[in-house]
Write a protein that binds this DNA or RNA. Structure first.
Length: 202
DNA sequence: CCGCGGATCTTCT
DNA sequence: GAAGATCCGCGGA
């Protein structure tokens, strides 16, 4: 998909899209396009897997503890990026949801690469199969060049954005429990596109 | 294909 | 001081 096609066939999501409950936003993000313009390159992938994280009622959510310097963006206005560092070497991308003052976000867990694929591959030299390029929360941030430098950035303006296809087909969604957490394990807050080979942990 | 463990460091207790 | 919203390479089947 060329940058020209991307601009013509898709449009950027606005803040109202994100100003809703996180589980609802997580479902609706499936099939949308995550785009990062970086150093003259346009990197893009279709969102095929996402998880919702809530506030007080979700002990697995970073926002459940309290408001800290790390989590403060979660309590702010929707449509901003929450990027955090984990396990000493990876970064994960979340999109802040809910109205201003209410915590909640969606973790982007896997992408189907659609544009700037060679650039993504150069960022993940150890990977050879396309389906492994961005099929995990740590993998996709590496492939897309997303770092903590983007903490708090406005997704509705600027170089990191989410776009929707004007002719999007409805997607078939599978709901499961979330991956890699030790508490609040039973909540059905993971969503992915059925039969999509770019989903993590198949 | 599957399971296991090491790497590595920020954040909060 | 310990845990953590992960990934990769290794060994075995």
């Amino acid at each position: 998909m060329s940058p020209h096609q991307l601009k013509k066939q898709t449009r950027r999501l606005s803040r109202t899209f994100f100003a809703r409950p996180a589980p609802e936003v997580a479902r609706d993000l499936l099939g949308k396009l995550l785009v990062h313009k970086l150093n003259g390159h346009t990197l893009a992938g279709k969102i095929v897997e996402a998880e919702a994280y809530l506030g007080d009622d979700d002990q697995a959510a970073h926002a459940a503890r309290r408001l800290t310097s790390r989590t403060k963006v979660l309590f702010g206005p929707p449509g901003h990026a929450y990027v955090y560092f984990i396990y000493g070497m990876y970064e994960c991308l979340n999109l802040v949801c809910e109205p201003d003052g209410i915590a909640g976000c969606v973790l982007i867990r896997a992408l189907e690469p659609l544009a700037g694929i060679e650039e993504m591959q150069s960022r993940r030299p150890a990977t050879h199969r396309l389906r492994d390029l961005a099929s995990g929360p740590g993998k996709l941030t590496l492939a897309m060049g997303i770092t903590r430098a983007l903490y708090g950035c406005d997704i509705t303006r600027g170089d990191l954005q989410v776009r929707e296809f004007s002719d999007a087909d409805p997607v078939e969604i599978v709901t499961t429990t979330r991956v890699g957490i030790s508490v609040s394990r039973d909540l059905p807050l993971r969503f992915y596109i059925k039969d999509n080979e770019f989903v993590s942990a198949r």
